[in-house]
């Protein structure tokens, strides 16, 4: 399969699903001339250019920043959300990770709460709706006190930043056998609960967000830990434990 100029070739098995269709199917494509420094999505760009030239409908696939921070991209590659490497998003994955001539299976992130829009594009608006139920600190522009008037211990600020680093890609949901959104939801709850600014709404936040998470059709967490393994930003499953404590505390208070 190997071309003489050092480029690589792959067989892709790609999920194709028409918009509005309840089901789809795997379609096989051959891609050639792939430079090992190309990203996974640049390899898809090449495939889609080939399809356009052949008069076929290109594969719908979402991406934007292509540097691992916006959370737009994300597909299951050989059954793993964002592919084989830990702490790497789909867009940051390079083709040097895939041996020449290999077969790569590409599917959308699958979950009832993330319906497929078309091909590899999914609807993750459920995440936004979870955030609307308290994933913020209520402060209008203009109301803020002097920034250094409220010291935040460095270790709390660092731990808050660890949780706040979530990019909202949904890999945690796709990896979970229950399609739970516990890692996503808990990361935001924990981040805000660690900060003094987050205290006034601590109780209503966890109750509201958890209720919405359940209403969206995400499954329950049963401590598989797949979410943490799939997370491209290294968000710890410890967040889920903390969310449970927050929830218990809030339930007793709201009792």
């Amino acid at each position: 399969m190997s071309a003489e100029n050092g480029t690589r070739s792959y067989k892709l098995e790609v999920w194709r699903q028409a918009r509005g269709a309840s089901s789809g199917r795997m379609v096989v494509y051959q891609v050639n001339g792939i430079d090992q420094n190309m990203s996974f999505l640049e390899m898809f760009d090449r495939l889609n250019e080939d399809l356009l030239r052949r008069g076929e409908d290109p594969v719908a696939i979402d991406s934007d920043c292509r540097e691992g921070i916006c959370g737009t991209c994300g597909v299951c590659i050989d059954g793993r959300p964002h592919g084989p490497l830990p702490n790497v998003t789909t867009c940051s994955l390079r083709m040097r990770e895939f041996p020449d001539g290999s077969t790569i299976v590409v599917e959308p992130f699958r979950a009832d709460a993330f319906p497929v829009v078309k091909d590899l594009v999914i609807d993750r608006s459920a995440f936004d709706r979870v955030v609307t139920k308290g994933g913020f600190i209520s402060v209008n522009a203009g109301q803020a006190p002097e920034a250094n008037g409220l010291p935040v211990p460095k270790d709390a600020a660092e731990a808050a930043m660890d949780s706040a680093a979530c990019i909202g890609c949904g890999a945690c949901v796709a990896a979970c056998p229950n399609a739970s959104a516990a890692l996503f939801t808990s990361a935001r709850i924990r981040y805000l609960s660690l900060l003094p600014q987050g205290q006034p709404e601590r109780t209503s936040r966890v109750l509201g967000m958890v209720e919405q998470m359940d209403a969206e059709g995400f499954g329950d967490c049963s401590n598989h830990g797949e979410c943490e393994a799939a997370c491209p930003k290294g968000i710890s499953i410890e967040n889920i434990a903390k969310m449970r404590r927050e929830y218990l505390r809030a339930s007793l208070r709201a009792g």
């Binding site: 109301q143 803020a144 010291p151 211990p153 600020a157 981040y191």
Partner: peptide, 22 residues
């Protein structure tokens, strides 16, 4: 200066020194 105040009040986790200040 008001922007930093606003963002801190929103909980933006800016880097801090050991005394807890920005």
């Amino acid at each position: 200066v008001s922007i930093i105040d606003q963002c801190v009040a929103q909980g933006v986790p800016f880097a801090r020194d050991y005394g807890g200040l920005l």
